[in-house]
Design a protein around this nucleic acid. Structure first.
Lengths: 156, 156
DNA sequence: CTTTAATCGTCAACCTGGTTGTCCACATAA
DNA sequence: TTATGTGGACAACCAGGTTGACGATTAAAG
């Protein structure tokens, strides 16, 4: 059928949207409202060691101010706690709370369930193939290889 | 290796970003700066018959005000022209200009070239397989099946 | 030890691409 | 003719980004 390159882009975006949209809906259904992928990513980065806003910004390829904003909402919702850093008075140390870890865990489970659904639809072999093709095309960690300068939010 | 569902989402988004990011860069290199996918989609919808802002909004699953804003930038850049509708004085009729059609054509070519690059990387068969799997999973026209209420921009 | 430079967090202003609500002009059905 | 619906414009707002500036603090250089 020889689809066009633009169609390919639509399909990739569509796949992402369906997956994330369904996940967000399911999360809300399980009591975690207003949790978005960006929150999950942020918590993961914090848990992985980005324990101050500037470092978090660097990890997420985003300005420290933007990172601080995200942290503010996460703190407000009780997913992240902020305290003084005993070693450096300039820093405020970030920590994922128990609730934060809980939402991360549930989110992971939801995504895995959705992936299982896809697996049943196209088959295990085929899904793995799809994933390895994508890895070959974009590299293993696309989120971190973003270009600087805010290209990410200019993609719409 | 059994990747997680969240990884799958990242891969899909990553694929989209790489493709669209490269395309935007290439478009800029060819003299069409500040053209984004949303502009292309909008022009296509107008060309396909959504010749007033309200109708355009419905086609794009977006409020008429949002559609009007997009049209305003398109008009400013000379890609779309707006005139009175002789049949209905409330409407302002939208038309894609010659320049608009040109950028659509070039954009298409760029995306097709990028798709060719991917084809060389993973093979023609495999790319077609990837596309048909995605079609099976999200349907043939994911852009139009968006949920109402602005879920689209809540996916980050 | 002091001065200089870098870094952290915060504030403010702004941009993009959306949203809602309100309003008036015009079209259409009763 | 009148009630209702629709198109476009304006305003206010929001999320999630951006820059620029600035005080406090730390680290490096002298």
């Amino acid at each position: 059928m020889s689809r066009s390159g633009a169609d390919l882009a639509s399909l990739l975006l569509g796949g992402f949207r369906v997956l994330v949209g369904d996940a967000t809906l399911e999360l809300a259904k399980r009591g975690y409202e207003d949790v978005r992928p960006v929150h999950d990513f942020t918590m993961r980065a914090i848990a992985a060691g980005a324990d101050n806003a500037s470092e978090l910004g660097r990890r997420l390829s985003v300005s420290k101010q933007a990172a601080a904003k995200t942290v503010a909402v996460l703190e407000e919702r009780g997913y992240v706690a902020r305290g003084p850093d005993p070693l450096d008075a300039r820093r405020k140390r970030l920590q994922v709370t128990a609730l934060g870890f809980e939402v991360m865990r549930v989110g992971e489970a939801v995504f895995d369930e959705l992936r299982d659904r896809w697996k049943r639809q196209i088959g295990s072999k085929q899904l793995e193939r799809l994933e390895s093709d994508l890895v070959a095309l974009v590299g293993p960690s696309p989120v971190l290889v973003e270009r600087p300068g805010g290209i990410a939010h200019r993609l719409n």
